[in-house]
Amino acid sequence: MTNPSMKKAAIILSFSIVTAVFSGQAWAEQGTSTSTPANVTSSDRSNPYEVAGINDPAEFTTYFAKLQKAVKGNNPAEVADLISYPLNLNKDNKKYVFYNKNEFIKKYDRIFTSRVRENLLAQKADKVFVNYQGIMVGDGDLWIGKQNNKLGVIAVNIINNPYEVAGINDPIVFEHNFSLLQKNVKEGKKSEVANLMVYPLKVNHNGKTMQIKTKKDFIAKYDKIITAKVKKALLAQKADKVFVNWKGVMIGKGELWIGQFGEQVGVFVINQ
C-alpha cells in the first residue's frame, strides 16, 4: 500500500460543503430567531409550519407522506407531481433550474440521488427544521414550501461526497470520525480510539499480520499498535488531502486505512 506507484496514482481530493443560496429561497441557517422545531400531534392546535406559509399542519404531513411513499416506490412520475416548479438544484456550487415535470423526470436520478432519497425517507415529519424560507429535510438536502400557491419541493441541495468510491455514504460522518480519531490519539485516550476501530482490526508489521479482535484487546496492545510512526502520520494528515480508492481512505503513506462497514466508519487496517 505504500509503494511509489500508489503515490503517483494518488488523487488529492478537496472537500467542502457549500451553503447554496437560490433565488427567493436560501439554504437556511439553523438557530435563527425565525426557526421553529416542528412537533405536531393530533391534539396539538398550534401550527409549527405556519412560518413557512402553510396554514394547515395536516396539509404538510399528508403531502410529506405522499412524497416519501413515491420516493420509496421509486416512481419518478409521482415524485414529479409533488414538485413545485420551477425547482432549484444546487450542485457543485452551481444552480440549475427545472421548469416542468418532463425536465425533472429525465434527470430524476441526478436530482434525487441516493443520499437525498435516504435522508428524505429517514426524516420524521414532526422533527423538521422550519423557518420563513420553507421546511428543511435532512441536512438541507431538500426544501419544501409553497410556490405559486402549490406545496411541494422547491429546492434540492446535493452535497458532494469525495469518499463515495471508498463506500463511505456520508462525508460528514467520515470527517467527524477522522477529527475524533486525531483528537483522541493526540490526547492518548485509548478507549475512545478503540471505539473508532473496525474489528477484527488488521495490524501489519514486517510482512506479518496480527488480528485485533476486540476493543479490550486493542486497548491492551495500544502502544504496540499506535506506534510513533503511525501517530505522526495520522496527526499530520489533512482530511481534504487524502488518497481514496475502492479499498478505502488512505492516511499518510498507508499507515492507516479507513472504511465503512455497515453503519460504522473506522480504521480497519494499520501498517506499521
Rank of each mutant, 00 (worst) to 15 (best):
M6L: 15
K7E: 15
K8E: 15
A9F: 06
A9Y: 09
A10E: 14
I12N: 05
L13F: 03
F15P: 01
S16V: 10
I17C: 01
F22I: 13
A28V: 04
T34F: 14
S35W: 04
S35A: 08
P37E: 10
N39W: 06
N39P: 00
N39F: 06
S42F: 14
S42I: 15
R45I: 15
R45K: 13
G53V: 12
G53L: 13
I54E: 11
N55A: 09
A58Q: 14
A58D: 12
F60G: 01
F64H: 04
A65F: 03
L67V: 00
Q68I: 09
Q68A: 05
Q68D: 10
K69G: 05
K69Q: 11
K69P: 01
V71F: 01
N74P: 01
P76F: 04
P76K: 10
E78A: 07
E78C: 00
Y85P: 03
P86W: 06
L87G: 03
L87W: 07
L89M: 00
D92A: 09
N93Y: 06
N93K: 07
E103G: 01
I105Y: 03
I105G: 07
I105M: 12
K106N: 07
K106Y: 03
R110C: 04
I111T: 06
I111E: 04
V116K: 10
A122M: 12
D126F: 04
K127M: 12
K127Q: 15
V128F: 06
N131G: 02
Y132L: 13
Y132W: 12
Q133F: 11
D139Y: 09
L142D: 06
W143T: 13
I144Y: 04
G145N: 14
G145W: 09
L151C: 08
G152T: 06
G152L: 03
G152H: 09
I154H: 00
I158T: 05
N160K: 07
P162H: 06
Y163I: 12
G167E: 11
N169I: 11
D170L: 02
P171F: 05
E175V: 09
L181Y: 02
N184L: 00
K189I: 08
K190F: 00
A194H: 02
A194P: 01
N195C: 01
M197L: 08
P200V: 09
V203M: 05
V203K: 05
H205C: 02
M210R: 11
I212M: 07
K215N: 05
K216D: 12
K216T: 11
D217L: 02
I219E: 10
Y222S: 09
K224Q: 14
K229Y: 04
V230A: 10
K232Y: 05
K232I: 04
A233K: 13
Q237I: 02
Q237T: 05
K238N: 11
N245L: 12
W246G: 10
W246P: 06
W246K: 15
K247F: 13
G248W: 14
V249P: 04
V249G: 08
I251A: 10
W257I: 15
G259T: 15
Q260I: 08
E263C: 02
E263N: 14
Q264R: 11
F268T: 14
V269P: 03
V269W: 11
V269F: 03
